[in-house]
Design a protein around this nucleic acid. Structure first.
Lengths: 206, 206
DNA sequence: AGTTGCTATTGACAGAGTGACAACAACTTG
DNA sequence: CAAGTTGTTGTCACTCTGTCAATAGCAACT
């Protein structure tokens, strides 16, 4: 008879275990609202003791913030493929790339950023603000508007505002199916072109 | 010596008490996130026994949904004052009215819709979707695009997407102060004009 | 004024969830 | 194989939520 000394649990590298718990948390937080997800649920999902969550993330809230941070991070554009054409062409390229990103995340993206809840959460707000800022910065670079440097702050504010429409249009497309990708592409391209080509110059003369 | 039989608590009409609790809940939920607000806090703020909250709203979540519903409801535009001019003029009027509404709610509005959290909450989503739908419907009527009836669904989807930009621009103005009201006015007016006058016709030919 | 009835409101209780921490066990190293 | 390292567990104390029977404000009617 074999002395089956099969261990009751496996000991993982901290990074691996962290990642595993984070994955489960992302899934569960994506399914139902914060208060409806207990750390017990997450622990069970990860096949782990509940206390381990506190060990790695301090508190439930800490884990949640980590989830938000993870989900909101947008990949940086590969600018090597950006065409050198007119503003309209570069904008079209950028929008297309944006929609690719949204499409890739698909349901998860929507499930995560789809709901605007009530409740002032400075920490979450900061994370999202930073993400929006990076996305805006990135978009500005991609369409090559760097020459407008002096009014950079206003330009980025404009683009962040545009980001709101991107998200809303994305929801119309992905979740509600009221617009096709082609339609969203058209709308966002025309709007962003007008924003950068027309409105922005007007704004600078105020 | 007077037989001071001062009552320990006053008995209110259900509607009044409901309203009072709701007011306190709105204030507190506007200050910190859902999980950080306990029903004990709300009860104390309202000077009321905790159990009463459950009596009126069933659960903490029920109260929360009521708060969201209340905060998200946008007053109907007074169409009697809408000018009969060009599309651009009507759009300008509508945007101005929108900004008035946002301005009136001010910090509260932002505190409420400012944070996009993570977590799929169908109920909250439904409430917000309905509110957006009503706002879009209202805006479409105000700018007098009712003639575009056959493509009403797409038009409203477009306007809902635009609503995303309204919110984002409002945040830039109210909370971050990166744009002035005049700038936001200009941006939204031009964008909406282009959306309705240019992009929408283009969209119909797809 | 005293009594009665209705119901808004309270207070206590049970169950569930969270965070802290000491003890344990899987794995590494010599 | 022994000893140390540390990832992991399980329990304890505390807080929060929802339920419910008991209480008390108030109006109506003697």
């Amino acid at each position: 008879m074999s002395t089956e000394t099969e261990p009751r649990w496996r000991r993982l590298e901290p990074d691996q275990r962290r990642e595993q718990i984070l994955d489960c948390a992302i899934r569960l937080f994506g399914e139902r609202p914060y208060a409806e997800v207990s750390t017990t649920d997450i622990a069970r999902e990860a096949g782990v003791a509940r206390g381990l969550i506190n060990h790695y993330f301090g508190s439930k809230r800490g884990l949640y913030l980590e989830v938000v941070r993870r989900m909101v991070t947008v990949p940086i554009a590969d600018r090597s493929a950006v065409p050198d054409g007119s503003l309209a062409e570069r904008v079209e390229f950028s929008v297309d790339w944006l929609l690719d990103v949204i499409s890739a995340r698909g349901k998860t993206w929507v499930a995560v950023l789809g709901t605007e809840g009530v409740g002032n959460d400075p920490e979450v707000e900061r994370i999202l603000a930073e993400a929006d800022e990076m996305a805006a910065e990135n978009l500005v670079r991609t369409v090559g508007m760097r020459d407008a440097e002096p009014a950079g702050a206003e330009l980025r504010a404009l683009v962040r505002a545009f980001g709101g429409m991107v998200k809303a249009a994305g929801r119309e497309w992905i979740t509600h199916g009221t617009l096709t990708r082609e339609q969203v592409q058209l709308v966002l391209t025309e709007q962003l072109t007008a924003l950068l080509g027309e409105t922005f110059p007007h704004l600078q003369r105020m």
